[in-house]
Computed example of a mutant assay.
Amino acid sequence: MTTILAVANQKGGVAKTTTVASLAAALGAQGRAVLVVDLDPQGCLTFSFGHNPDRLEESVYDVLTTEKHAKEVLLETSEGVTVLPATIDLAGADAVLLMRPGREFALKRALAPLRDQYDVIIIDCPPSLGIMTLNGLTAADSVLIPLQCETLAHRGVGQLLRTVREVQQITNPDLQLLGALPTLYDARTTHSRDVVADVSDRYDLPVLAPPIPRTVRFAEASASGATVLAGRKNKGAVAYRQLAENLAGYWWEGKELATFAAEV
């Protein structure tokens, strides 16, 4: 059974794209058929899988705004993950879709013919609460919120949760909120644990395990056009592999979703 996961947070710099790329690569390494959808005009997810967005002639923009079929735009990668890529053209998609009826359903319609071909589809939503993010949430079965374990990280979480509730009420009543994923986590500090505990208590939000540690390997991988799992073993890759195992057990084996309890 195919599951579609949206990864969303309107705050930038929370390791959202890193989470999508690393989780997809880890699930692919399990033998799962994985499709990732890049909804960010910056195209960082597309670049993370070895494709230069500046050299692509077609992208998800064409799929959402014209009659182009998604299967005509898909790109394969060295890590076995299929990409529906983004280019800077996507920055104009909101304006094009704004006056169209059912604009929030554009991505859902585009993915419908592909759904049975993949075990999981992961959507990288842009750092905003615009039409692209609404499309991602409307198309998804569940949503995951990467949460930076730093001061004021919770700012905006309430607004995002309100958006999720509105989507549940209007365009996608079956959307499930999986919870928050702690990123840039430093287990040596009480501050990281305090941030996780604060968000969990303030919003009654499940916090998934394991927390993703802060490591320079993520930046190095992004700069090289690869995911962190493509390089040598490191603590970031280990954490994302564990997250992939937890989600796979939850989605396909009926296991309880592992959560993280901060010790404060």
Rank of each mutant, 00 (worst) to 15 (best):
L5W: 08
L5H: 12
L5G: 12
L5I: 15
L5Y: 10
A6G: 09
A6V: 06
A6R: 10
A6W: 14
A6I: 08
V7R: 07
V7I: 15
V7P: 11
V7T: 10
A8W: 08
A8L: 09
A8T: 12
A8M: 12
A8Q: 13
A8V: 09
A8Y: 12
N9L: 10
N9H: 10
N9Q: 13
Q10T: 07
K11P: 11
K11M: 09
K11F: 14
K11V: 14
G12F: 13
G12M: 10
G12Y: 06
G13H: 14
G13Y: 14
G13F: 14
G13T: 11
V14W: 06
V14R: 09
V14P: 09
V14F: 04
A15L: 11
A15V: 06
A15M: 10
A15Y: 05
A15T: 15
K16G: 10
K16C: 06
K16H: 12
T17M: 11
T17L: 09
T18F: 04
T18Y: 03
T18M: 08
T18P: 10
T18K: 02
T18G: 15
T19M: 03
T19K: 01
T19W: 02
T19C: 05
T19E: 01
T19Q: 04
T19S: 15
V20H: 03
V20M: 09
V20E: 02
V20D: 02
A21W: 00
S22C: 13
S22K: 01
L23G: 04
L23N: 00
A24N: 09
A24G: 04
A24C: 04
A24V: 02
A25D: 12
A25V: 02
A26R: 00
A26M: 03
A26E: 00
A26W: 00
L27N: 01
L27R: 05
L27T: 01
L27G: 00
L27E: 04
L27A: 12
G28N: 01
G28H: 01
G28K: 00
G28E: 02
G28W: 02
G28D: 04
A29D: 14
A29K: 14
A29E: 15
A29Q: 15
A29C: 02
Q30Y: 00
Q30V: 05
Q30I: 01
Q30F: 11
G31P: 01
G31Y: 01
G31N: 05
G31R: 03
G31H: 02
R32M: 11
R32K: 15
R32A: 14
R32V: 06
A33I: 03
A33R: 15
A33L: 13
A33C: 07
A33K: 15
V34H: 09
V34D: 07
V34R: 06
V34N: 07
L35I: 07
L35S: 05
L35G: 03
L35M: 11
V36L: 09
V36H: 06
V36Y: 03
V36I: 09
V37A: 03
V37P: 04
V37R: 06
V37W: 04
V37C: 08
D38Q: 11
D38N: 10
D38T: 07
L39D: 05
L39Q: 09
D40V: 05
D40L: 07
D40K: 04
D40A: 05
D40Q: 06
P41F: 10
P41K: 12
P41L: 12
Q42P: 07
Q42D: 14
Q42F: 06
Q42R: 05
